[in-house]
Design a protein around this nucleic acid. Structure first.
Lengths: 211, 211, 211, 211
DNA sequence: TATGAATGAGTTTTCATTCAT
DNA sequence: TATGAATGAAAACTCATTCAT
């Protein structure tokens, strides 16, 4: 079989599994359910994935990349369009765009369920390929306003983790706060983190005290 | 059998399961493993828990309460000891105590794995009993410095979610940052959230803009 | 405990089990269900019954006796009231009374479910005690019109088996025929058996041909 | 796998279960016993049957059909071979053949245990397929001698129920009568039912009195 | 490549019965 | 007598994975 066709089939299985994982959970979904829904035979599944874990790994990777790529692309687009003076306006706009994206793709969250950082953890994702390029460009924007590389990475990591954790709960359960209720506070809190870190950066406090 | 003894036995089973869940994961732990480790017969387990799900539910609830209680107790203790002027110093100290607590009880996190908010979600936990009392007292401290009830709740919710998410990853994988690396940034970020919200509160901006 | 009280308690357990057996079936009813419904402790059950089989045996015996006693009593009453000429009228009336009884006590059938003959099998039932007396008196009525003891027993056995089998189905499922639909045919068929046997008896054919 | 092979395998499992049910009873036979005896893996069983109940249902249906088919076939064969005058001779011969069949296949009875009427209850059995054809042909023979459709069905139903109930007990326990002891009386009783009903039919009594 | 029947280890769950109090 | 916690053998059922076709 041609390489392209193989990749297409793999994607199809991943998308099918993704739908099922969303409605029944990962351990609530049997390989049998996946192959039936995908319209393939049980054995065929094992031609494309080593085992169930392999499917999960590849699914998380695939969906995380989709999400990250979209977010980073819009961040870079915004940042490139402005000068340094409006940098935090762009950050805020990027955050808002990211939150819009999450609300549009709430189902992504339902499956990844706080797993985005898991993928970020796998070192290669943020360094290799298209995503690596986008990420490096965004970091460069932060450096342009005074952040060191590490400071930028940590700050972004903290904010994404908070947003991810809070939105997963809000989207899934609307409790204790709904998306509408918590969103303004979340944006403010995120901006507070960015600007306070920036203040420290400019005052030189960060270097002396912590790093 | 006396009611107290029954509760003791239930606790013993929960603690045993907790140890096993930590080392082998929930789905990697069979009821059989739990009963063997607890030194009871298989049937006895079903005398205390309807089924495996029931055990997990009760375990998460039990461990979450333990954690929350300790944290809220230390928060209240610190806050009561100071006047309003040093309020944010106390908040920072409380945060540091909470992080100490998490590091000391890293295993709690490994099982709860970001489930603390799940428990907070079940409304009754933060309103009923001993924990409810502690929580209301802490909120009152925030109100004393100008927060409304809702602002205080949202801010605490945001910070706890961020800390929880970040520390779970840091403790579990030490990637992309270890606990030592990320802790200062995490405390700063948390304080930035508290103080920025306070500033808005005092400037009246919060009411006008968002709430 | 006084002997009478013991017997009362045993009866209470049997009646409770009987209700449960009716709604859930015998193997669908756990001893636990019985003791809970009877309001006694699990261990207490085993003071009154050797094991579950013992309960079933005693229950079937007890309920069968109740049924048999009522039927035989009405048969004897009817037969004693008439002379030999109207004997088959009395038999028919007795049959009708028996069918009335079954319809009134349909629940008895639902549990005994074709087990009446099982009890009749246990020799002692039809020979000992009050029931034995009643049964022997009924047989004597048949002998008075020419049946031998064996002929009478066989004929009664056949008719009761047929009625029991047919009514169990009819009462339980009303299919393929309901009680109302099948009752006239059942009475006619039963009478045909009695009268045809009687004809053979009088013609002497039975002895020569078959016995 | 070819559809035929699947059916063959299912039949093999049913036959194996049937042997075990006969010797140990249904609830005394575990699925494990069945699969071991059938030489298949435990999981394979669940490929062919939803659960244990499904096996029992299908087994009873399968065995009932076998029995019914043989009986109806011999009934039709006999009836077709004679003219109307000897009709009741043929009925008697058919009854005798049926009793022979039951004695030869006593094990069928031991499992079906009065379940034949259960199958007859499921309307489709006596109307669909090969069995439906046979049954309709037999009914037509009865109609040829004056029975209405309903009268024929009711009479056959009564007789089969009686024979089934009586023979099950006689074969299983030989009490209160053995097969040899009760057989002549049973045939006479059955014939009495057929002929008395026929007499009513011809005299028109049935219509007026009961139907 | 694709199939799907077969596998069997592994898990959960039930329940009659015992026994210390 | 009465209790009910404890038992553990036995049973039902699941499902990831293999392999002959």
């Amino acid at each position: 079989m041609e390489e392209n066709k193989k990749i297409e089939k793999k994607k199809k299985i991943i998308e099918t599994a993704y739908q099922l994982f969303r409605s029944a959970g990962i351990s609530g979904t049997a390989i049998d359910d996946v192959v039936k829904a995908a319209g393939i035979a049980r054995g065929t599944f094992y031609l494309y994935f080593k085992d169930k874990s392999d499917l999960i790994d590849q699914l998380v990777m695939y969906k995380s990349m989709e999400t990250l790529k979209e977010m980073l692309a819009s961040a870079r687009a915004g940042m490139l369009a402005v000068g340094g003076g409006d940098f935090f306006d762009v950050v805020r706009q990027t955050l808002e765009m990211y939150l819009d994206f999450l609300e549009r793709h709430r189902d992504v969250l339902l499956v990844l369920h706080k797993n985005i950082s898991v993928s970020m953890r796998s070192a290669s994702i943020l360094t290799d390929g298209e995503i690596g390029d986008l990420y490096r460009e965004v970091l460069r924007q932060f450096e342009a306003v005074g952040f060191t590389d590490v400071q930028a990475e940590q700050t972004i990591f903290l904010v994404i983790n908070m947003i991810d954790a809070v939105y997963t709960d809000a989207l899934l359960y609307a409790r204790p706060f709904s998306v509408q209720e918590i969103r303004p506070a979340l944006v403010d809190a995120s901006m507070a983190i960015f600007t306070s870190r920036a203040a420290l950066v400019q005052g030189g406090a960060l270097d002396a005290d912590h790093v």
